[in-house]
Amino acid sequence: MREFSLAELSRHSGDVTSVANREPVTLTHHRKPRYVLMSIEDYKKLAASAAQTRRVFTVENTPEEVAEWLLPALDRFADGEDVTNG
């Protein structure tokens, strides 16, 4: 990922946005990464991908395959076992 400072963005916005049309770019402030600039198409792909990987369930609508691995872990957790590593 290419990096540009905010000052470079101000002076050469056309160049920076041209790169951002091809790939996300990091925008820095005082040499520290602060922002990411990307095309709207890349953002929509990223947002759609994130939405597909997140799933929330209530007790009533938890799929059986999720409950099969979740319930034993909850039992171990209730017994005071460490469940952070599987």
Score class of each variant (00 low, 15 high):
residue 6 L to I: 08
residue 7 A to E: 13
residue 7 A to T: 13
residue 9 L to S: 07
residue 10 S to K: 11
residue 13 S to E: 13
residue 14 G to Q: 10
residue 14 G to Y: 02
residue 14 G to E: 13
residue 15 D to R: 15
residue 15 D to L: 12
residue 16 V to P: 04
residue 17 T to S: 10
residue 20 A to F: 04
residue 20 A to T: 06
residue 22 R to V: 00
residue 26 T to M: 08
residue 27 L to V: 02
residue 28 T to H: 00
residue 28 T to P: 01
residue 30 H to T: 06
residue 31 R to E: 13
residue 31 R to H: 12
residue 32 K to Y: 04
residue 33 P to Y: 01
residue 33 P to I: 00
residue 35 Y to I: 05
residue 35 Y to C: 02
residue 36 V to H: 02
residue 38 M to Q: 15
residue 38 M to T: 12
residue 40 I to S: 13
residue 42 D to W: 04
residue 45 K to P: 03
residue 47 A to Q: 06
residue 48 A to G: 06
residue 48 A to S: 11
residue 49 S to G: 06
residue 54 R to S: 15
residue 55 R to F: 04
residue 56 V to E: 14
residue 56 V to N: 11
residue 56 V to L: 10
residue 59 V to R: 12
residue 59 V to E: 15
residue 60 E to M: 05
residue 61 N to D: 15
residue 63 P to M: 03
residue 65 E to T: 12
residue 67 A to D: 06
residue 68 E to V: 12
residue 68 E to F: 07
residue 69 W to M: 08
residue 71 L to E: 14
residue 72 P to I: 12
residue 73 A to V: 15
residue 74 L to V: 15
residue 74 L to H: 10
residue 74 L to F: 13
residue 77 F to G: 07
residue 78 A to L: 15
residue 79 D to C: 05
residue 82 D to V: 08
residue 82 D to C: 04
residue 86 G to M: 03
